[in-house]
Computed example of a mutant assay.
Amino acid sequence: MRALLSAMILGGATVGLGACTSGFEAPYDPGVCYYVVPSETEGEEPRLNVVAQDQPQIEMCAARLEEMRARFLRMGGSNREIIGAYQGQFIFIDPQGVKFGKTLTGARFFALARTGDGRLAVPGAIVRDEEGRPVAVAENPPTAPAE
């Protein structure tokens, strides 16, 4: 009787843990960049649309998603936040920058920030003014070749 009771408790705990870990996962297709279309109804999984293939790294996928976001905004769209997926990770693009995460609802790693003119850059490379706002930095002018 005691063994049966402990087996039932263990089985119930296993089922409970399985329910907690089940969720929508980013696909692991090598080099494929996806746009994640959030579901409109409760309980339905998001849809995936291929944005680009043969992307060598996650930052390149983020750049393709940013291009898509900017193009939609120019055409009159209003969605300023986009979710993408690349090789098992989710990419979150919003007006502040780009973040990566393993799940749709979990912790996110801040990867790229927006400069003062809206471009994306590594956070440490951004120059800020006294109040902390990003300042657009132009590239150094090319030097004339020595004769």
Rank of each mutant, 00 (worst) to 15 (best):
R119K: 09
A144K: 03
R133T: 08
N140C: 00
A136V: 11
D54Y: 10
I9C: 04
L5M: 06
M60S: 08
A146Q: 11
R119A: 09
A62T: 06
M75F: 14
I93N: 02
T105A: 00
G23T: 15
V51L: 13
L73R: 10
T105C: 00
Y34A: 07
A107N: 11
P141I: 02
R64H: 12
A136Y: 10
A62F: 03
D117M: 01
A85M: 06
R108K: 15
G76A: 08
G132I: 00
Q96D: 12
V32I: 11
T14A: 01
R133W: 09
R74L: 09
P134K: 02
V37L: 07
G31M: 06
G31H: 08
Q55F: 05
S22D: 04
R2K: 04
F24W: 11
R128G: 06
I91P: 01
A146P: 14
V36A: 08
F72H: 14
L4E: 00
P123E: 05
T41E: 07
G106R: 04
P38Y: 08
Y28C: 04
R64K: 12
P123V: 05
P30H: 12
A62P: 07
I83W: 02
P145F: 05
V137F: 03
Q53M: 09
E139V: 04
G31N: 08
P95S: 10
G77D: 00
L48T: 06
V50P: 03
E67T: 07
Q55P: 03
R71T: 15
G11C: 05
A111Y: 15
V137G: 05
S6N: 13
R64M: 11
D117N: 06
I9M: 02
L73M: 10
P145Q: 08
T103H: 11
Q55T: 12
G118C: 13
L48W: 05
K102H: 11
V50A: 08
G132H: 00
D29Q: 07
Q53F: 11
D117F: 01
V135Y: 05
P123F: 03
G12D: 15
A146H: 10
N79Q: 12
G97Y: 13
Q96H: 13
E147M: 14
M1H: 13
R74D: 07
A125E: 04
F92N: 06
C61Y: 04
E40F: 04
A125N: 10
L17M: 06
N49E: 12
E25M: 15
Q96M: 14
F100T: 07
E147H: 14
F72P: 10
A138P: 09
V137L: 05
L10A: 13
L65S: 02
C33W: 15
P142F: 03
T105F: 01
L120A: 13
E59R: 14
A144Y: 01
G11F: 03
I83K: 02
M60T: 09
S78I: 14
T21V: 00
G116A: 02
K99D: 13
F100Y: 11
R71F: 12
A138K: 13
N79Y: 05
L17V: 00
G77A: 00
Q57A: 05
Q57H: 04
D54F: 12
E131W: 11
F24E: 12
V135A: 06
G23V: 07
G18A: 15
T105I: 00
R114P: 11
M60I: 01
A121I: 01
R133P: 06
R80Q: 12
I82Y: 14
P27Q: 02
I93S: 03
M68P: 02
P141Y: 01
R80L: 15
D29W: 09
E139K: 03
